[in-house]
Amino acid sequence: MSDESALLREPWFDFGRQREAGKFGIWVFLASETLFFGALMLTYTVCRIEHPEAFAAAGRETNIWYGTINTAVLLTSSLTMAVAAQASEQSARLRRLVLSCLLLTAMLGLAFIAIKGFEYKEDIDKHLVPGAEFALPQRGAELFYGFYWLVTGVHAIHLSIGIALVSRLFWVLLRRELPAKDNPEIEVTALYWHLVDIVWIFLYPLIYLPGRAS
């Protein structure tokens, strides 16, 4: 009970209900995020319909290794995040597991950003930044890279927010400012983290896979 009273916030009287409201609230926000990234992907899809060959040619220029490894990294971070969330629900004895999984999640997030940094460096060297120096001749290829930079940038911002949230949570739990058992912040952060992962799951075939077969 003392755990719950430490976690209870205004205006709630009942911890269970507060927790459910937090979970519901983040799901509503995730629905909003679905439309946010969905609109970007719609932009991509319409441009791709109008310039299929240019998009295939541009997709071939991306580095599939960086892309695939990064996807695997994010999928793994979702695993550790899910374990952290489920462990916090399961038992107060699993505090150490929760902590280590949170740390691992943040590390994997940072690894993703680091790999992305190497990839950006390579893209810049290959003149894949839209503008006067752009490397590809096909009309429409610039659109692909316009989308590429924008959407990976927006995704990286989302991921950085996620890393900040997870790290903060780790720190707060480590210092025992809040209990780990049933802490709604873990659950809510995990849901957000998974969404960022899902966005990347869809970006992977859109960015890295076009034009590989030809």
Binding site: R139, L143, F147, L150
Partner: peptide, 26 residues
């Protein structure tokens, strides 16, 4: 969120020079 995206694209095209709606670049 869709409004946010449409304005983000305008900003990206103006500030970063990313082509999204530029007819000359497709």
């Amino acid at each position: 969120p869709v409004l946010a995206i449409s304005l983000l694209l305008v900003i990206a095209e103006r500030v970063l020079g990313l082509p999204i709606f530029d007819p000359a670049r497709g």
